[in-house]
């Protein structure tokens, strides 16, 4: 099961099955440098389970750095969803793919 958590306007989805093989664990360091250190290692996997969901929303800065570092130095396990209100409807209406 992937780990999911929400910040104020985004959703972070981590496929933690990919994490035990990760040697860099770069997402953890990135979260300290670019945000407020929400992510911590829990049994070798990134987790925010030490925080309540309200704390995650309050502290999260939506920096996107964990996803980037996981692309570059990890196992491509992190995906961040950033909804944009009205964009899908606009693209559909304009027939833009």
């Amino acid at each position: 099961m992937p780990t999911e958590f929400e910040e104020r306007t985004i959703k972070v989805i981590i496929d933690t099955n990919k994490c035990p093989d990760c040697v860099s664990q770069a997402c953890i360091e990135a979260c300290k440098v670019y945000s407020r250190g929400l992510l911590q290692l829990d049994d070798g996997k990134p987790s925010v389970s030490h925080l309540s969901s309200e704390e995650v929303r309050r502290r999260g800065t939506e920096c996107l750095a964990c996803e980037y570092e996981c692309w570059q130095r990890g196992n491509n396990a992190i995906r961040i969803e950033i909804p944009i209100k009205g964009l899908d409807d606009y693209l559909k209406k304009r027939n833009i793919k």
Binding site: E7, T61, E62, C63, L64, I82, I84, L87
Partner: peptide, 11 residues
Amino acid sequence: VASKIYRVAKV
């Protein structure tokens, strides 16, 4: 925040 900049770039 980066998420807001991303939204602008995407639009």
